[in-house]
């Protein structure tokens, strides 16, 4: 299948969007909160739970404060993009469908060496794990491919197949750039051509400074506790809404607070104020929230509960 080589970062995003749309996925929008990875989107974490079939794909802007390099690194940013695909139950030909997506963004299967190399995925903060691979193209990791086994402490049944593409790295490879900041974001032939660096370099420097040295840690510690308390408080509400008289389990609003706590933890970590021993304790606290949200979500109609 001859595919015209994409010329810009956004062409790759668009190609992935239309490829997965053609495979029947609902093309969702990014979740509107700060997250560390596409997996945190409730469309993955929560929808992987329960028996209801699900099929979605989306771009998720993600933030990892510790990865900040002030915009100076050719391949590391504290804000970056992941492309996420989740299909439940995992189709038997998911590997082939996935390979089709690589062709769709201009990777010629006849010239490249694609490999599935063991890499089991685990998210201690989400109480989730799965088995799968990192997918290599000519020795470079281009995706993570996982069969979810557990999320929020619940066994996944049926099992979801999850794909995560690190978009910057993949695009740099496909477009042939060693420095991601130089890669064209829109078409190089556009009246106003913009590179990835034009768009993000300034932001990277500003956020790196704030993340590493300025963020008010006292306030963040308090926000962490607030989010934790709010999450618990939401889940402690009775199932029956006294106003409407309907059964409304508020797993999603509670999960928002869990995501918040997780991101605040990442910020505190970047500020270097969490010691090695405390680290485990904080991760455990976020995991406890994720589990409580998962417990609540499986009780909802969205998870297939009666």
């Amino acid at each position: 299948m001859a595919v015209e080589k994409p010329k810009s970062f956004q062409e790759i995003l668009l190609a992935l969007q239309s490829y997965w749309a053609s495979k029947g996925c609902a093309i969702l929008q990014p979740y509107d909160m700060e997250v560390g990875a596409g997996t945190f989107h409730p469309a993955t974490t929560l929808r992987a739970l329960g028996a209801k079939p699900w099929s979605a794909a989306y771009i998720q802007p993600s933030r990892r404060p510790t990865d900040g390099r002030y915009g100076d690194s050719p391949n590391r940013w504290q804000h970056y993009y992941q492309y996420q695909v989740i299909i439940k139950p995992s189709p038997p030909d998911l590997q082939d469908i996935y390979l089709g997506s690589l062709e769709a963004i201009g990777i010629d299967m006849g010239l490249h060496d694609i490999r599935f190399v063991e890499d089991d995925w685990e998210s201690p903060t989400l109480g989730a794990w799965g088995l799968g691979w990192e997918v290599w193209c000519d020795g470079m990791e281009v995706s993570q491919f996982t069969y979810f086994q557990q999320v929020g402490g619940h066994d996944c049944h049926p099992v979801s197949g999850e794909l995560t593409y690190g978009l910057e790295r993949l695009a740099m490879y496909v477009l042939g750039y060693d420095d991601g900041n130089e890669m064209p974001f829109n078409s190089p032939d556009a009246p106003i051509p913009l590179t990835y660096g034009d768009i993000f370099r300034e932001a990277e420097a500003q956020y790196a400074r704030w993340n590493f040295d300025v963020a008010n840690t006292e306030m963040l510690f308090q926000h962490f506790i607030d989010a934790e308390n709010e999450c618990r408080a939401i889940l402690e509400q009775p199932e029956i809404d006294p106003k409407t008289g309907r059964r409304i389990v508020m797993a999603l609003p509670a999960y928002d607070q869990c995501i918040k706590a997780s991101h605040i933890f990442n910020l505190l970590d970047a500020r270097g104020v969490i010691s090695v021993t405390e680290r485990q304790a904080y991760i455990g606290r976020v995991r406890a929230l994720a589990k409580a949200c998962a417990d609540a979500f499986v009780m909802t109609e969205a998870a297939g509960a009666a």
């Binding site: 010239l111 490249h112 000519d138 020795g139 470079m140 490879y173 060693d178």
Partner: peptide
């Protein structure tokens, strides 16, 4: 695998990853 370009693309890719 073998390729039509005798592995040139694969080698170039690997070299790039190694350099990074």
């Amino acid at each position: 695998r073998e390729t039509l370009d005798d592995g040139a693309t694969i080698l170039a890719g690997n070299q790039k990853v190694l350099s990074a």
